[in-house]
């Protein structure tokens, strides 16, 4: 009797669980592939035309803008509609003293991304929040008040723009320490440094759904004189 009942219970049937496992796994994979196609479409780099539109409308029209975003002013502002901060594309501004053509900008970004991997940035810093936790997150480093006009980094490196301050720092980081924990000299050349700055500026324009949250607080605190740089 007991034996009979046991055989009739689907819950202890291997074949039920095997078929269910196959179905659930198969379907989850299909959904993931579909979602991936959808996401790929949304995170491919935008075009120069997208950027012109974004600059006119003061918002971002593609989640990951094209390389020529380095020719524009970038901001990170609270959006009421979305409930978090979003990048905002502003007016044009020179980058290392000039406007970069589509081709030049793409080449520079390529050099920068490649250098970021060759120098292993990710094993001290986080990029988009992923990586190591020994040094500050670089997602919005380009927008960080420490590097802006009036900030400690431009004064320390004796430069007048964010890009120059960053490039100079990157070539000789241990000469411009901000903390006992210093960035080591990684043999970054002048060209590579420019590429890296382009990479950082580009990354700051990516729509990260509000990460890091409250970044503007850092800006406010900085304006009232709070800073850790010695």
């Amino acid at each position: 009797m007991a034996n009979e009942n046991e055989k009739l219970s689907v819950w202890t049937s291997i074949s039920f669980w095997r078929r269910s496992a196959a179905w659930v796994t198969g379907f989850a994979v299909i959904l993931l592939i579909w979602l991936t196609f959808n996401t790929m479409g949304q995170i491919s780099m935008g075009t120069d035309a997208d950027l012109k539109k974004a600059a006119q409308e003061h918002r971002v029209v593609s989640r990951v803008p094209g390389p020529t975003v380095i020719n524009y002013h970038i901001d990170y502002k609270m959006s009421k509609k979305r409930g978090h901060e979003v990048p905002v594309i502003g007016a044009k501004e020179p980058f290392f003293g000039k406007e970069w053509s589509e081709k030049e900008a793409a080449a520079l970004l390529h050099l920068g991304k490649l250098t970021s991997q060759a120098k292993n940035c990710m094993n001290c810093h986080t990029l988009l929040g992923n990586g190591a936790y020994y040094a500050p997150d670089l997602t919005k480093a380009w927008l960080d008040p420490a590097w802006q006009k009036g900030g400690p980094m431009q004064a320390m490196t004796n430069t007048n723009t964010t890009e120059e301050a960053m490039a100079k720092f990157l070539q000789n980081p241990s000469q411009y320490p901000t903390h006992a924990r210093m960035m080591p000299n990684l043999g970054i050349t002048e060209e590579e440094a420019k590429g890296l700055v382009a990479f950082l500026k580009h990354m700051s324009s990516i729509d990260t759904n509000g990460f890091p949250r409250n970044f503007s607080k850092t800006v406010e605190q900085f304006k009232t004189g709070g800073t850790n740089a010695h």
């Binding site: 479409g41 509609k81 409930g83």
Partner: peptide, 9 residues
């Protein structure tokens, strides 16, 4: 949708 780009999901 509140997202930037319209999509099925």
């Amino acid at each position: 949708f509140t997202d930037v780009v319209p999509s099925f999901f």
